[in-house]
Design a protein around this nucleic acid. Structure first.
Lengths: 165, 165
DNA sequence: CTAATCGCGGATAACACCTATCCGCGTTCA
DNA sequence: TGAACGCGGATAGGTGTTATCCGCGATTAG
């Protein structure tokens, strides 16, 4: 079940789930349990719970335990970027890690030459910075507005009704 | 041996090897065999060979078989971007793949609303575009110049001497 | 008080991909 | 002919992703 074979190669599929959940949370009136979020998106409840725990540990959401518990955003949706969510799920480590192979072999780079990072690493890190800047410029609130544009102004009204069920 | 635990999480470690190899090839006078490239960088010969085959299939290098065979860049180093190498090794598929979970659950998005790509997907793809643009702006020739700045003007002279050995 | 609901963390397992090696094949050249 | 070389397939260990289940503690409705 739920064998969707999400991203496959590189980005964890849980990122997509987490971002969509944040959009839902931004439109909810109270705490929304993982059960409800999973049901709404038609995805695995147990696995989504793992990702929500990551969001909790990253400080993006607070969880209330007990009978009517669930998740609530800790900040206004306009102050939570897509990058925040991605980093919470995927981790904060850069995708590219330089192994300094320039220091290997018969003609290793001198320590003096290694004062600056390797040119390859500089290019990779600059690209990642551009990627992060782009994701950091989009907020959960922006995504919510996009949904309204695409699906109509009543969309979140219906969502709130269903959440209240 | 060679248990370097390269990138770890996301980007294939072979990318780093491949880019460095392209820089070396850009400074070589003739075909350079995989054996030589691996020895120069202090990395696994058999595994590097696999990555070089990817570069060959992507059209970035041509391989000459036989006794004095090896690899040669197909284009001037100024016309080969780091992005070209990354795509050749990692594949051309985007890191983020939208699974359209907005069409799931009790309140699925209407077909009309799905004429545009999902807002989450749009943000992710825009970020990847920024990443690719950044990598596409750096060429192998740029990296070669960077090496000269860091390691001195004689670096590639020594490299060519060693390759001629 | 009890039971149901809920988040949390650990254990577990299937699966895919990355890393790495080895082999046989065909090619080229001394 | 033999040595060096690229190519493709087979193989295998390691790691990360995906997914599920369990017990625990917390909270609240009845």
């Amino acid at each position: 079940m739920y064998s969707r074979r999400m991203a496959g190669v590189k980005m964890s599929g849980g990122v997509e789930w987490a971002v969509h959940c944040c959009v839902v949370l931004s439109q909810a009136d109270g705490p929304v349990p993982a059960q409800r979020l999973a049901e709404f998106h038609g995805i695995s409840r147990t696995y989504l719970a793992k990702h929500l725990q990551h969001l909790s540990r990253a400080g993006l959401v607070t969880s209330t335990e007990g009978r009517i518990g669930g998740y609530v955003l800790t900040r206004p949706a306009g102050e939570i970027s897509v990058l925040d969510v991605v980093l919470a799920i995927e981790g904060r480590e850069p995708a590219f890690r330089c192994t300094e192979i320039r220091q290997n072999g018969p003609l290793p780079a001198s320590p003096a030459a290694c004062r600056r990072a390797c040119g390859v690493a500089r290019a990779m890190h600059a690209a990642e910075r551009a990627w992060r800047d782009s994701l950091g410029a989009v907020t959960i609130a922006d995504l919510g507005e996009g949904v309204l544009e695409d699906a109509g102004p009543d969309t979140f009204v219906h969502l709130r009704e269903w959440l209240g069920t």
